[in-house]
Design a protein around this nucleic acid. Structure first.
Lengths: 247, 247
DNA sequence: CGGGAGATTGATAGGAATCAAGCAACGTGG
DNA sequence: CCACGTTGCTTGATTCCTATCAATCTCCCG
């Protein structure tokens, strides 16, 4: 029989034993500090594909770290236009935009069945006062988000369709690779339309550009399955443009 | 004679007596807390028009708050393409992107003779541990920057030239207005090319679009001098798009 | 006064959006 | 298990917006 049925606590995932710890948390925390975190962080809320983690306008209480799965965040304009502001995989934090007004500024939607940790912000804030490295870590995470946004601005402001898509694929590739997945063979979790929204393109343009890349032998596309055959060719396309951030 | 020549200290501007305090700092600080800040914040570095406050790649030590004047921040790609990531006026903070890697991620350049306060970050960080409202204030400032960046993404990803320029002018207008300047009559501190870089447009398009607005009677343009004659018309253009943030 | 940077305006070209049609995969229900 | 409708994707034809190329023009500054 399954032990887990008898000792459900043995299943409990804590920060202390989380394999993503080095992505979410500062290094060098003491055992004591880790258990303080474990006491505050609510583990493993599960979401099904398509489910909202939070919506723009909802009260902000917590940040969320992706444990497993895949999310998109997006802002919508009154007339219904949607701008995807990011895609988020394991170890990445969502909700930072909610701190400023105590209200979430974007929607966060699971693109596959997913699991998140909830970080109640005000308690993290007080904990940060006791654990300086934690405080610093949060400043760094927010700063990294700002840097990421700047590189998206560069992409949207300066690059043409081919460059945008190449940069996007390479960025995905590098983030997957740093999580132990294959860098050159992966499944897109999002639709062409969502890619287009993120890149400031229409879905037809995304589709056409993928086909063009495939035709040149740079990659192969089978629906959502992407194989990068000549990542160097893609890199050459975006070379000169600022590099995609690696996390 | 001028008193200031004899009592230069009477000129010293501190956070305690700074008129921009409500923009830079949390409200409700005690006299004691303010003097702690005064001890840390280095007042009034002066820059001439065109001067760099910091450059991308330089070591990061401090944040900078604009006291007077006007700045642009920009990121550059290897092949020389420049993306202006923001314009900054009094009370606004620059350098937040440097925290993540301890290196400045963008250039900051004065667009007119300017004055900034320097906030040594690590000392602000420790001060934040003693003054929770200060710590929270910094989180909020960074979050606000993220929200701002998201709205720029929406602008670059979804809007067309006229909408971008209208949103830009209204955003400037509202920020100037909240600082006590006229909302409908102001001087552009940046060139057409810099506006274009920020908005993802070429300078010719900026110029043409301004002319178009003027021709419709929505505003008048005299070089850098802009008068909004029918701000409602501009608002109508961007209505449906997400509103420009007010600070 | 002259040179040059910045801005305006015009003509043309090019890239992505739009409109449209057809296809493939998936899930549901008969 | 298969028909069928739905959804997402691909591909083609055309249009539209903005970039590009080019010619002036104005103002500022030395």
């Amino acid at each position: 029989m399954n032990d887990q049925l008898f000792h459900p606590h043995s299943l409990k995932v804590t920060c202390s034993n989380c394999s993503l710890r080095e992505l979410c948390l500062p290094v060098g925390l003491s055992r004591e500090e880790l258990s303080q975190l474990d006491a505050v962080i609510r583990q493993s809320r599960r979401l099904k594909r398509g489910e909202y983690l939070f919506r723009s306008g909802e009260g902000f209480r917590s940040l969320f770290a992706v444990r497993t799965g895949f999310f998109k965040t997006s802002v919508a304009s009154q007339d219904g236009r949607e701008q995807v502001t990011g895609f988020h995989m394991s170890g990445e934090l969502m909700g930072l935009d909610g701190i400023s007004a105590n209200v979430h500024g974007c929607d966060a939607i699971a693109l596959e069945d997913s699991e998140v940790c909830e970080l109640p912000f005000s308690r993290m804030e007080s904990l940060g006062r006791e654990i300086p490295s934690l405080q610093h870590h949060f400043y760094r995470l927010m700063s990294r988000e700002i840097v990421r946004d700047q590189s998206v601005m560069l992409l949207l402001g300066n690059m043409k369709a081919e460059e945008r898509l190449a940069a996007f694929l390479l960025n995905l590739s590098s983030r997957l690779s740093s999580r132990g997945f294959s860098a050159n063979d992966f499944i897109l979790r999002m639709s062409r339309e969502e890619i287009g929204s993120f890149l400031g393109l229409k879905l037809e343009t995304v589709s056409r550009t993928l086909s063009k890349f495939a035709q040149q032998g740079w990659l192969s596309v089978d629906h959502k399955h992407i194989k990068l055959e000549q990542p160097e060719a893609l890199k050459a396309l975006v070379s000169g443009c600022s590099q995609a951030p690696s996390v």
